[in-house]
């Protein structure tokens, strides 16, 4: 290549180029899939109004461009999307981008908090269990992991609501803020945190169990490697061997899984947001499907694919930083 870029930048540029066809394919696929489903926005609107005469329905269709062939509709949509114009949501009577931006924060907050809790707790519990492998501690941790792992998140969510909100009354049942309280400053932060506790737990526990099991196996595996023996032959203490020699090497498969699972967490948030009535992208997706709000739905898909692409890119960066043998090429 003629121009010399720093490796990270060149890598980023290449990944950006690779992302374009990926996202394009996702959008085309989803558009066609959604067009295959019976019913459209007009059906949903007319249904809400309790019926209307055929001439009005036909005019409405023509107005929204729904009378055109599917390929023409797709072309129109994609050419607008190329300029980051997401279109108009006929359900919310707002531009889709506004609707999306309103909801993005809540979802990102939920995902970031549950993934970080899952990752940090999973990794430390897993490492801890591996260090005391086959002891009582290990068995207790592993059994707990199995329980979390086997429990569907919606069921866990309902159980928690029953216990913490209904019986004990410690935590709010749903929503993201106490209605009518109008907190500001730190009170608002504390209030939001209170509301996020249960959704975050419900979403993170299953992933926590994943990371824990993987980390435990990984630590046990790395502990048997030659360089760990070298470190012990140098006179390093068990905790030093764990932190400096085992952890970093054992983290690699966990990071891989973290990147891969990000998209599943997005999917899982649909359920959780609906149960806890959090105004996030997941809940929005659910209502958009019911209302046949195609523009909003496609906007969510677009946004999610971008998030996943970005997260995969970040995972690769973290991976390269953790594993010195990998060159960013």
């Amino acid at each position: 290549m003629g121009i010399h870029l720093p490796p990270v930048l060149a890598f980023a540029l290449r990944r950006l180029l690779q992302a374009v066809p990926v996202i394009l394919l996702i959008m085309i696929g989803s558009f066609l899939l959604l067009k295959l489903t019976p019913g459209d926005t007009v059906d949903a609107l007319v249904g809400d109004m309790g019926g209307a005469d055929p001439a009005f329905v036909a005019r409405l269709r023509a107005e929204y461009g729904l009378d055109q062939p599917v390929l023409v509709q797709m072309w129109r949509y994609l050419s607008k999307l190329a300029m980051f114009d997401f279109g108009w949501s006929y359900v919310y009577e707002q531009p889709v981008s506004t609707v999306l931006l309103d909801r993005l924060g809540t979802t990102l907050l939920l995902m970031a908090s549950s993934l970080s809790i899952a990752f940090v707790c999973g990794v430390s519990l897993g490492a801890f269990a591996a260090r005391r492998a086959y002891s009582l501690t290990d068995n207790v941790i592993s059994t707990l992991g199995l329980v979390f792992y086997a429990m569907p998140s919606f069921f866990l969510a309902l159980l928690m609501i029953l216990l913490f909100s209904v019986k004990l009354g410690w935590l709010p049942v749903g929503g993201v803020a106490t209605i009518g309280a109008f907190y500001t400053g730190w009170d608002k932060v504390a209030d939001t945190a209170m509301h996020m506790v249960m959704p975050t737990m419900a979403l993170s526990l299953i992933y926590l169990a994943f990371y824990m099991r993987l980390m435990r196996t990984s630590v046990l595996e790395v502990s048997d490697l030659d360089f760990v023996r070298t470190a012990r032959a140098k006179g390093a203490s068990p905790s030093r061997v764990m932190f400096h020699h085992i952890m970093r090497n054992a983290l690699l498969p966990v990071v891989t899984l973290l990147g891969l699972q990000f998209s599943t967490v997005l999917g899982g948030s649909v359920v959780i947001e609906t149960i806890f009535s959090l105004p996030g992208l997941g809940q929005l997706a659910y209502t958009s499907v019911v209302k046949r709000d195609l523009n909003t739905l496609l906007g969510i898909i677009f946004l999610c694919s971008i998030i996943v692409v970005i997260v995969n890119f970040l995972t690769d960066l973290v991976y390269a930083w953790l594993d010195r043998r990998i060159d960013l090429k």
């Binding site: 030659d226 360089f227 023996r229 070298t230 470190a231 400096h244 043998r325």
Partner: peptide, 13 residues
């Protein structure tokens, strides 16, 4: 101590 496999006896990271 010096080990057999110089490939694996050093921490890769």
């Amino acid at each position: 101590m010096i080990f057999q496999e110089p490939m694996t006896a050093l921490n890769p990271q």
